[in-house]
């Protein structure tokens, strides 16, 4: 029964393509990049893939050379979490698929390998993000004392964010809690050392939370003509910024300044 076998292969390929698109979306790829990658992979199997890409759902239809629709399916995305290692791995893989004519089985194995790749150790992430916060503070004009406090505040804030994410809190609430922690720590400097101006420390302690990837992707989607996705991503970035501001506001109210 060759027909059945072929149907099974097509279904497998379709599921794999959806998985690739979903992984790209949650790892922080722009819409154009997702479309290009899926086109590249489906071309290698000489099918045409048409997609509808949105933040939470991805829809894919595949057509064969006679322009018959052979696969049509939807996939919900998992929770978004920026991971550039996945992005780079999938990009390299898509070129190998095209050049070396990989089979679906090999693609799935590679996808599994990419998903299992470790993150940086938690302590490294915390320390370097803390250093980044201190660097921000220095750039804004802070002194050594400000930098130290921002370092501690950023580390504590990121720690709280990671723990809150683990506990499955709403993502915006995680950002709020992180901003609150960081600004409470940095704000103590303003409160208890009033002689000098510590505004920089207070303002830069929450900068590690800025939604850089959503905002930049929003803009690249917009100039690509994916206006709808661009607006949605921009809105997401805006709400994250709002949560940060709310966190700052809460600690300002706490300290009365």
């Amino acid at each position: 029964m060759p027909d059945n076998q072929q149907n099974k292969d097509i279904k497998e390929l379709g599921a794999t393509l959806l998985e690739i698109a979903m992984l790209l979306m949650v790892s922080g790829a722009s819409t154009g990049r997702i479309r290009n990658t899926i086109d590249r992979v489906s071309t290698s199997f000489s099918y045409t893939a048409n997609m509808f890409i949105s933040q939470r759902t991805i829809m894919l239809s595949m057509y064969n050379e006679e322009n018959e629709c052979i696969f049509n399916s939807l996939k919900r995305t998992s929770q978004h979490g920026i991971n550039f290692t996945t992005l780079s791995g999938i990009s390299r893989m898509s070129w190998s698929i095209l050049e070396e004519k990989w089979t679906v089985k090999k693609i799935n194995e590679e996808l599994n390998r990419l998903c299992a790749l470790p993150h940086y150790p938690r302590i490294v992430t915390l320390l370097l993000t803390g250093l980044a916060g201190a660097a921000f503070c220095r750039l804004a004009g802070g002194a050594l004392l400000d930098m130290t406090v921002v370092f501690a505040g950023t580390m504590a804030g990121l720690f709280v964010k990671q723990e809150a994410t683990k506990l499955n809190f709403n993502p915006y609430l995680c950002v709020y809690l992180a901003a609150l922690t960081s600004s409470l720590i940095a704000g103590s400097l303003v409160k208890f050392n009033p002689g000098t101006d510590h505004e920089f420390a207070f303002a830069t302690s929450v900068l590690f939370l800025i939604p850089g990837v959503p905002l930049i992707n929003a803009f690249s989607d917009m100039i690509d003509g994916n206006l709808q996705n661009g607006l949605i991503r921009g809105m997401n970035g805006f709400i994250i910024s709002f949560s940060i501001a709310l966190g700052l506001l809460t600690s300002m109210a706490t300290y009365h300044f």
């Binding site: 290692t85 940086y120 803390g130 250093l131 980044a132 916060g133 660097a135 921000f136 750039l139």
Partner: peptide
């Protein structure tokens, strides 16, 4: 010196975004 701090901040974010070590 400013360049150094800019670079450090960039690396902090790169780690946060989990970029490959080679980059």
């Amino acid at each position: 010196e400013k360049g150094f701090w800019f670079g450090l901040a960039a690396v902090g974010f790169a780690i946060l975004f989990n970029v490959p070590v080679r980059t």
